[in-house]
Nucleic acid binder design. Sequence first.
DNA 1: CTATGCATCTTTACGATGTAAAGATAGCGA
DNA 2: TCGCTATCTTTACATCGTAAAGATGCATAG
Lengths: 246, 246
Amino acid sequence: MAKSDTRGDTKGGTARRPRSPQRTSQASRAARRPAAAKTETPYHHGALREALLQAAERVLERDGLAGLTLRAVAREAGVSHAAPTHHFGDLTGLVSELAAIGFRQFNAAMASACDTATSPLERALARPKAYVAYAQAHPGMYGLMFRTERLDYSRPSLHEAAESSFAGLANAISAMRQEPISGRALTIEQGAAIARAWSMVHGFTMLLLDGRLEDILERLPAGTTAEQLLEAILKSTVAARMPSGT
Amino acid sequence: MAKSDTRGDTKGGTARRPRSPQRTSQASRAARRPAAAKTETPYHHGALREALLQAAERVLERDGLAGLTLRAVAREAGVSHAAPTHHFGDLTGLVSELAAIGFRQFNAAMASACDTATSPLERALARPKAYVAYAQAHPGMYGLMFRTERLDYSRPSLHEAAESSFAGLANAISAMRQEPISGRALTIEQGAAIARAWSMVHGFTMLLLDGRLEDILERLPAGTTAEQLLEAILKSTVAARMPSGT
DNA sequence: CTATGCATCTTTACGATGTAAAGATAGCGA
DNA sequence: TCGCTATCTTTACATCGTAAAGATGCATAG
């Protein structure tokens, strides 16, 4: 339903001067959009911003990054194609706000995973495993957060959410190394430890989502999953690096 | 010059039925494109396919991934916007062939870097350093190879080039571990070693290109470069993993 | 209670893109 | 010399992002 942008656009280019009054009264407009806005007021949605973000997340997980367009989101929400502009400015704005939501979900998932861990070894494994698990459960969202070039990190919501994600990682690493970070400064060893951990998990996730680890998984003993491969990587890494055996 | 696709298109939508003979003779056409094709034959370019790929690489490094469009490449090459279709089918085709070229450049860069290395430690560092160096020198190309969703790996040229890249990595890892890979099968430890190395370098590169390591670099001692950070990561990794000290 | 202003949403319009389809051109073999 | 076919151009169209102007309804001042 509503295949062509609630009609209008790209139809006749020659006729129809820009300034024809035309007076489409409320009745004709309401008759044209029967299904949208079930019991809500048709005009003045009230919570269009949140509705658009939820619609965007649905579109993203259904049609992928390529399908996430302003017009598709507007269609999904049942409003005109230009409605999102007023709330987000442009596509970058919408995408950035959605990515901020993604980072918050992501942070929450990792925090809850760390809470349920008991032993130090388990704690060291819980975070990266939750990282990859989130990306597998929300591939569209993860791609939006880490693959899209149209993100505006100057937006406070996105900047803050992404910053919080980084802070969680840095804290986890410094806790594992048992040397707290003093202020903002980092030694080269600390920076290398953080960058190594982040690079490893992020790289693994990207390769996995892109299907580039299939080659390796096929060569492994039959039935080996990506999670088991990740665990093997993590265990050998942690074993070579933790202060003492658990 | 030639700002609007050699003219035509998007002009009048209503009039002009599809089948008007219209007979634009050769004279009018030649007069319309004066500057393109300097001394070559105007029609039947002869080596359009290669010219388009070179044009595409120029456009990619100049305008980034977002600027790499079929029409922009055609403009850059001085041909009509539909000319690439005949040689590559669609945008995925062109992009895939260009990515294959990128993989070949990439493989050559890493091979030559390994050749110049002498000590085992140097050999272990040369490949990942060349990896990151290539990505920094050709960010557009690397993004095309590892960020684009529009790649068709069923194309033989791309499949082969990417496969060769993976084989080089796997060989380097098995050489470092001093246990050759038997046939196609991998133990879980071998798979983990390969996936770990690839994930680390790929993740580092992506984060670096996306500017996400800026935060870490700023906190490091003043003047620390990305290369130094990478080296610190690699050295600690290799030190924990190589059979004996060098 | 009415009028005015403003935030919200819709219409209309335009340039750009990918792609399909049909026309034009040239080289090459029968 | 005459088609045949590969190569390139024209034309057309749906879709997208975005700008600009109109329509609508809520809030608030008078």
